[in-house]
């Protein structure tokens, strides 16, 4: 075991340039695979496999429907995955993601309230905003509970513990709201909660896209600082960063991303956890590369999962969250076993 590792290390040392070009090839291969997967997902659907008949009105409608689901998937997946990258870096914990920290639960609660109370155009516009606000409040509550009794910074363990607790409180409240809601409201909420990439209104899509690009750009600007923060808040401070400020801004952006994802497509788990790990295993932990790659990878992963979800048991559609978990889980385990040494030494 030891010997194998040593020889691998020697190889790394003597073939420096080769390993660099290997990285470039890997990147090229990755982009090619993404393109192929996106194209494939345009060919899959409950109406059959292949390009629909463009002459008929239903054919072009099907194609445009598939395309808008592709956009929904890209946005949601990118948001979840980038959010996971940031949470994992800032909390220095491989288990951190929006769900574990209660952020998604908080966003879900806000979204549920909006769906039940709000009506018409206003509701679809306010959905991402309310989801974001309630997610921020949730994060503050989680942070506040975790800070109790500790001097200064809460530990990661108390953060995750209080995150899990607050998250389950949020889902209990959602359940309560659903059970007391009118039949129509109940239907809307449950449909949304199961997680699906059914296109939302054009207005909400535009708003979400704008917020998404803003948050991604912000995180990308932060990304070199995320590298420094991976060595801990103290070390980042010594190296001349406003460490606490970077942490707060990073958490806000990551929360915004989680809220965008939840308001677009409901509760879709696993993407924010798996995709960052897989990307880190393939391309290394440098956040300047990792943030954009994870966003792309997360988007395509969700698009492919959705294509499978709507095709596999057609005409019945499987909730896409079920597919992400079923497909992602084992994949995650394989990656974990093979590349954990490089991806994340826990």
């Amino acid at each position: 075991m030891k010997r194998i590792k040593r020889s691998a290390v020697c190889a790394d040392n003597s073939f420096t340039t080769q390993s660099r070009s290997r990285g470039a090839w890997r990147m090229l291969l990755f982009f090619a695979a993404l393109m192929v997967l996106l194209a494939l997902s345009m060919l899959l659907g409950p109406s059959g496999i292949g390009i629909p008949d463009m002459e008929s009105p239903s054919g072009s409608a099907i194609l445009s429907l598939r395309f808008s689901r592709l956009l929904m998937g890209m946005m949601t997946g990118a948001a979840l995955s980038a959010s996971g990258v940031v949470f994992q870096a800032l909390l220095r914990n491989p288990l951190a993601e929006p769900y574990v920290l209660g952020v998604s639960g908080g966003a879900g609660l806000g979204a549920t309230l909006t769906i039940l109370v709000g009506t018409g155009v206003l509701a679809s516009f306010s959905l991402p905003v309310v989801a974001f606000l309630s997610a921020v409040v949730t994060l503050m509550v989680v942070y506040g509970i975790a800070s109790q009794g500790s001097s200064g910074q809460p530990s990661v363990y108390s953060l995750i513990l209080s995150g899990v607790i607050v998250s389950s409180i949020c889902s209990s409240i959602i359940m309560f709201l659903v059970s007391t809601a009118s039949v129509e409201g109940m239907h809307n909420v449950i449909w949304w909660m199961l997680g699906s990439l059914q296109p939302v209104s054009a207005g909400q899509q535009l708003l979400s896209a704008a917020l998404l690009f803003g948050a991604l750009a912000g995180i990308w600007i932060l990304s070199p600082r995320l590298n420094a923060l991976a060595l801990g808040r103290e070390m980042a401070h010594y190296q001349g960063l406003h460490a606490d400020l970077v942490i707060v801004i990073g958490l806000l952006f990551a929360t915004l991303l989680a809220a965008i994802a939840v308001s677009l497509s409901g509760m879709i788990g696993f993407v924010g956890l798996i995709v960052p790990h897989v990307m880190r295993a393939i391309f290394g932990p440098d956040h300047r590369k990792l943030v954009p790659l994870a966003a792309l990878g997360g988007g395509v992963f969700l698009v492919v999962c959705d294509a499978v979800a709507r095709t596999l048991l057609a005409p019945v559609e499987i909730p896409v969250g079920v597919v992400t978990a079923l497909a992602g889980g084992p994949f995650f385990l394989i990656i974990l076993q093979r590349r954990m040494k490089q991806a994340w030494i826990a």
Binding site: A89, R92, N93, P94, P224, R225, N227, A228, A230, L231, G232, M235, A236, Q239, G240, L241, R280, G284, P285, D286, K341, Q342, A343, W344, I345, A346
Partner: peptide, 18 residues
């Protein structure tokens, strides 16, 4: 110093310039 992720030595030292 503890690096939870698999940074290379290069990347770690570059943090000094952050």
């Amino acid at each position: 110093i503890e690096s939870p992720m698999a940074f290379t030595v290069d990347q770690i030292v570059m943090n000094g310039r952050i």
